[in-house]
Design a protein around this nucleic acid. Sequence first.
DNA 1: TTGACAAATGACAGTGTGTCACTTATCATG
DNA 2: CATGATAAGTGACACACTGTCATTTGTCAA
Lengths: 209, 209
Amino acid sequence: MPKPTFFNLPKKKRDHLIQAATDEFSRVPLNEASIANIVKNADIPRGSFYQYFEDKEDAFYYLLEQKMESHQDNFSTILKRNQGDLFDSFITTFINMLTEFQVEENLNFFRNAFLNMNYKMESKITNGFNKPKFDKKFESILTEVDIQKLNIKDEQEVIHVLQIIAAVTTHNLMQNFAKKYSFEEAIDNYTFEMSLLKKGLYKEDDDHK
Amino acid sequence: MPKPTFFNLPKKKRDHLIQAATDEFSRVPLNEASIANIVKNADIPRGSFYQYFEDKEDAFYYLLEQKMESHQDNFSTILKRNQGDLFDSFITTFINMLTEFQVEENLNFFRNAFLNMNYKMESKITNGFNKPKFDKKFESILTEVDIQKLNIKDEQEVIHVLQIIAAVTTHNLMQNFAKKYSFEEAIDNYTFEMSLLKKGLYKEDDDHK
DNA sequence: TTGACAAATGACAGTGTGTCACTTATCATG
DNA sequence: CATGATAAGTGACACACTGTCATTTGTCAA
């Protein structure tokens, strides 16, 4: 998290800094980004940067969280609108994200982010799918999910369902940037994989073999 | 790939360098690792490193590929032994990997690798699951898979099945390092998720709703 | 013995990081 | 209004690491 000083900044200066950081992380992935460039673009002295952030990771993850927040907040609403259907809700969210990624201004930031997705980033993005005890957002999602539809025997197991969907979703987003699929191809691939997940990868006929 | 010079090195010197690099990548993740440390440990001049590798990424990905090669090579054999059953084969491979990761000597290398897994690394690990046209290993796997068992209508769609399993598998491996599951917990989680994948996340009863 | 080619070497320029002593701004209080 | 305390701003600096390149050393065929 940024230091308190950052949040005390006048909005204009803060936004300017955010823009400069976004530009740098859009130009190159996190590991190649340099604070030197950010402060040059933001036109602030080097020392100031360290008043606001611990280091460049701090700045990057703050930005990422910001840009993902809306999707997380919406998810609960989308779930409700879809009568607790997890899959429909994920597909809607997937399309929302994809749409946002199309915007020229965001494209490179997210490309750099997703092609260098690691555990920490994934945690920020799927925020809370794995810490039911601490996260309120997660709890509110859990209560919305229509568990009756799911092929599980108790609520404990919902976590596995979420883990699976999250894994396949982030994997799809990653692949999209790597393979440069068109908007339509991306959605087709994702919905197909979601349908496979729903109905199972195995044929059900028990008489086989 | 390392430069030809690297492969011309006498085995002893090459192994010593490999060990030094492994040590450094076990100490810290790729982005924090330094060539300065590697050459110090390997006791070779800095310039020599650049005779052998393009940069530290080159060295890292070479090591990673080396350490993953056996699992990839075995997969085809394992598939055959399991009568083309993808899931059983993946579970076997998962356990093999987990076993290898337990070894003190490998533990930190793989921890650093998996917690910083990105697209490029995943490609090295799931090597070829997404480029059927070019990869021989992949072709040989494809012919072994018993497609009859799978819930798909043509061979084209196998790729999606593989993508899904690969996504869930790497996700599980990542989580293991992050959550520090025990060997048994890890296997239980994975086999459960695999069984969910097989039978589907949704209840089949069509009369619902 | 020589010459040509490959490999080894380490000094060096360039770039970036995080810190710290110092300066400037803000603001409550006597 | 003056003062002092606290917070924020600043940029020079020491340190670390990278990639290169001119030079040296080694190898081997003619």
